[in-house]
Amino acid sequence: MSEKGIKNFNKRIEAIEEILAAAAGGDFAAQIDIDMDAADLLTSVETGINLLIADLGEEVQESRKRADDLAEKLELIEKQRKAIEELSTPIIKIWDEVLVLPLIGALDTRRSQKLTESLLTEIALTQSKIAILDITGVPGVDSAVANHLLKTVSSVKLLGAHCVVTGIRPEVAQTIVHLGVDLSDVETLSNLSEGLKWAFRHLKLMAEARKS
């Protein structure tokens, strides 16, 4: 059976179907064999399909490459973020029963949760009575950051230890007051050395009370 003027009609349609199915399945390599010497009505359709599939194949390949690149970059960013997170949250046991946490970098919910978790674990482990949170290196202290800090301080208190926040720069003090964040329940001091003095005075007071 053949249409007028078209040779091997059924066979060629089958070939077209096969190629299209392959393309739909993601294989753009195959092309329709075209007999140029016996060009007829169907030949232009076949040529068109071949061109289309070749174009499509190129485009798909390119977008795959872009997706791979993107995934790779995202993975790299994630890796770096983790490395920075770990680097920037050391907990230093500066004295018997005194821990210092110098915070560097932005404080988002996720990071402050992780920080709180490691600080509390360390307090429980070392049975430290005082934790000094130094926020000198935290940029953009807004109400969200202040609330994260409040949560950390509250949970340290629940454990039975004391928390001091140091490194409050003048502009941070301004922002906090302007934003209406209530830090009155939190011991705040201007810098780390004041914080250490506070810690020692506090420990001494406790020791003296113990003696008497």
């Binding site: 949970s155 629940l158 454990l159």
Partner: peptide, 11 residues
């Protein structure tokens, strides 16, 4: 002696 996990969750 409150546990760290308990303190965090409570807050």
């Amino acid at each position: 002696g409150m546990n760290p996990a308990v303190a965090i969750t409570l807050v």
